[in-house]
Amino acid sequence: MPFLPAPSRPTKLASRSRRAAPALAVAAALTLSGCGMFGGGEIKEGGTTLYPCPAVGVLNETDHVTLLSGAGTDLTDVVAKAEIGKVVSTCKYDVEESTITVDIAFNGVAEIGPAAPARALTLKTFVAVTRRFNAFDKKQVYEVPVVFEPGQRQVHFVKTVEGTILPYGGRADGSIYQILVGFQLTPEQLEYNRRTSYIPIR
C-alpha cells in the first residue's frame, strides 16, 4: 500500500485537544459521507487545523468474503457472502503523553446463500495498524455476528473499534499511520477472491 507524503510540523499546538466525536457519532457517520477508503480526519479547534488523524481504509483483496460449504466452488455451495462498505474515524491527541487515541467504525452487508445450514453466522474481521516504512505494527481480529431473520436474505452490520492508542513524536503526527480493516481470510478464501470475479451485493 502506498503511504502518504511525510507531514510538515503542525503550525498550532494544543496541550490537550478534545475528542472530535464520541464513538456513537463515529458509527453514525457511516450513514453520512464520512471518510472513504484511505480518508483521514483532522482535529480542529477554533476553525484551525491542528493535527491529522491516521488514514483509514480497506486492505486490498479483503473487502469481501465468500463462505463455502466444504470444498465446493459452485454457486449452490455458497453459505454466505459479505462485503465491507465504508470506514470512518475520529481521533484525539494527548500532546502531554505524545499519543493518539483513534476510534474507527466500518459498515457492511452480508447475504445468506443456498448452502447455509443456519440463519446465524459469525464473520471474522480485522483492524491493522501500519506505520510508514514498516509492515503491520499491530493487528487485532474481531468477530461480527449476523443473524438473518426468516425471509431475510441480507443483513447490514456496523463494527466499532474504540481506543486504539498510537505513539508519535518529533516531527511526526498521525499521518505516519494507516489503519486498515478487512475480513480475516483463510488462504483458501484469499485465493478464491483472487481467481473469482466478485459481484457486489445489491
Rank of each mutant, 00 (worst) to 15 (best):
P114S: 14
F133T: 14
R19A: 14
L180Y: 03
A21H: 04
C35G: 06
K124H: 12
E45A: 14
P145H: 07
A118C: 02
G36H: 07
K138N: 07
F157Y: 15
I165V: 15
T130F: 11
H64V: 01
M1C: 10
L68V: 07
I84D: 02
I165C: 05
T99K: 15
P117V: 04
T122N: 08
S175Y: 05
K86E: 01
T76R: 15
E45V: 11
G36C: 07
S98Q: 15
M1F: 03
K138M: 06
E149A: 15
P167W: 10
I176G: 05
L4R: 13
R195V: 15
D63Q: 11
V129P: 08
P200M: 03
R195Q: 14
M37F: 02
N193S: 04
L50F: 07
V144F: 00
M37W: 03
Q154Y: 06
A105N: 03
A27D: 02
A135W: 03
K159P: 00
L123M: 04
E83G: 08
K92N: 13
V181Y: 01
Q140C: 03
S15A: 11
A71W: 00
F126M: 01
A20F: 02
G57R: 06
G34L: 05
V141C: 00
G108M: 02
P150M: 13
A118F: 01
A27C: 02
P187G: 06
A116C: 05
D137R: 11
P7Q: 09
L50Y: 06
D63Y: 08
V144Y: 01
V78Q: 12
D74K: 10
E111D: 09
A25I: 04
V65G: 03
S8G: 14
I100E: 10
G72V: 03
E61K: 14
T160K: 05
P22A: 13
L24Q: 11
V56M: 12
D74P: 00
A21Q: 12
T49L: 12
E111F: 14
V129E: 06
G113E: 04
I165D: 12
D94Y: 10
E149W: 08
G174L: 13
F3C: 09
S197Q: 14
A172P: 01
V95I: 12
N107Y: 00
L32C: 01
S15R: 07
E97R: 15
S15G: 07
V58M: 10
P5M: 07
R171I: 09
V109W: 03
M37C: 09
P5E: 06
Q154E: 14
L166P: 04
Y168C: 11
E61W: 02
A128C: 04
T62A: 01
Y142N: 09
L30C: 00
V56P: 09
F133S: 13
A25L: 07
E188P: 02
S33C: 07
